[in-house]
Simulated assay, not measured.
Amino acid sequence: MRDGGETVTFDFAPMVDIVLLLLIFFFLTSSLGARQTALPLDLPRASSAVKESPALPIVSVDPAGKVYLNGEATPLTSLGARLRPLAQASGGVVGLRADENGQYGTVVEVMDVIRRAGGTRLALGTRLPAASGATP
């Protein structure tokens, strides 16, 4: 109490409003992030693998030689045009995921298209090592 007999109160409504707005903001931004749709690829294992950045454009090649850009089927003929702005936005870094049993010739063609589209560095996709430490 103060000298004049008044009771000091704290209004929680503005604080609750701010917390709710922050929650809504974080829910929306997390759901609008780059989504990676899972393709049935059998990636090779690497003992020094690290997790990729979600901001990278990802080019995938399945065992049949079909090409995907960020999980969306893309003909090899139009891959360069669609990849060019994404490669520029990522500073020239492009992720490449190819099935372990895939067609080597298609992977080389895709690498050539990535280079012509402005990709200066490749982040090759591999499986993370098993948690038990056993080598495959």
Score class of each variant (00 low, 15 high):
L32P: 11
Y104W: 11
F12L: 11
V108T: 04
R45W: 07
G80H: 00
N70C: 03
L86P: 00
D3Q: 07
E6F: 15
P14M: 04
V93G: 05
V19Q: 10
T126Y: 07
R2D: 12
L43M: 08
S60A: 10
R97G: 03
L56E: 01
I114P: 00
F26W: 05
V50H: 05
V93M: 10
D42T: 10
G5W: 13
R45F: 12
P75D: 10
T74S: 08
A117S: 09
M1E: 07
A38T: 06
E109F: 00
L20C: 10
A130P: 11
G95S: 05
G65P: 02
L86Q: 00
A117K: 01
V50W: 05
D3K: 08
V61I: 13
D99R: 08
L122E: 00
P85S: 06
E109I: 01
D17G: 15
M111P: 00
V16W: 14
E6R: 15
M1S: 11
I24Q: 12
A134R: 14
Y68T: 03
L32T: 11
L43R: 10
G133R: 03
D3N: 08
P14C: 05
P75A: 05
R84V: 06
A81F: 09
G4T: 13
D11G: 06
S31F: 14
G125S: 08
P129C: 03
L20I: 13
A49Y: 02
P40A: 11
S47R: 04
V8D: 13
L96C: 01
L20K: 15
A87Q: 10
T9Y: 05
A81C: 09
R45Q: 12
R35H: 09
R127C: 02
Q103E: 13
V8F: 14
Y68D: 01
R84I: 08
S60N: 08
F26C: 13
T77V: 14
P14H: 11
Y68M: 02
S48C: 08
A13R: 13
M1K: 07
P63C: 05
S30T: 12
F10Y: 15
A38C: 03
M111D: 01
L39A: 10
L83M: 00
D112M: 11
T126C: 14
V16N: 03
T120R: 13
A81T: 11
L32M: 13
L124D: 06
L86I: 03
S132K: 10
E72Q: 08
M15I: 07
I24V: 15
M111V: 01
G102W: 03
I18Y: 14
S47L: 05
R2C: 11
L20A: 15
Y104L: 14
D17Y: 06
E72D: 11
